[in-house]
Design a protein around this nucleic acid. Structure first.
Length: 154
DNA sequence: GCCAACGTTGGC
DNA sequence: GCCAACGTTGGC
């Protein structure tokens, strides 16, 4: 089982919205590196759900991948915001998965606090200029992040 | 709203 | 294949 971190703008789709649904298709990703990671996701993998472009950016909850990666139909739908004429059912260019909420974190783990963790120095999230919206999280990184959830404030 | 950093596009 | 121009991301 693998760990991932996925970003979402809460104004567009928040963890609270994910909790209100049984599952949510994760489509519309149009970045090749993120697509490759999406394609590697397997049912059962755990996802750290991150709120970006908001007042308090940070990890807010845990979700689970609940479906095999598959071609993203919105890529060949001319009416979709995510339409890409280079993609077709015969030659899909973009992929999607599906996730479901597991639980909210007891507290928001802010980007500031994540940056302060030496264990996360290689995580793209905390690297300057990195905008990757789907990224793998190593076991030791996941442990360090969850330990923060239970750590006392200083 | 600003803007740095980055990915993508397309002319050459 | 280079690289300038452009669009996007996302913290601040």
């Amino acid at each position: 089982m693998a760990y991932w971190l996925m970003k979402s703008e809460p104004d567009v789709f928040s963890f609270e919205m994910l909790q209100a649904r049984t599952s949510e298709p994760w489509d519309g990703v149009r970045n090749y590196q993120a697509r490759n990671y999406l394609r590697d996701q397997k049912p059962g993998d755990l996802v750290l759900f991150y709120h970006s472009s908001c007042a308090q950016p940070g990890i807010v909850g845990i979700a689970r991948v609940i479906a095999e990666a598959r071609p993203d139909p919105s890529s060949w739908d001319p009416d979709s915001d995510y339409y890409d004429p280079r993609s077709s059912p015969d030659a899909p260019r973009w992929f999607m998965t599906e996730i479901a909420a597991v639980r909210p974190l007891k507290r928001l783990l802010t980007l500031d606090r994540l940056r302060a963790l030496p264990e996360l120095c290689d995580l793209p999230l905390v690297k300057k200029g990195t905008r990757l919206s789907v990224m793998p999280v190593a076991d030791h990184e996941y442990c360090a992040i969850l330990a923060l959830e239970n750590a006392h404030e200083h």
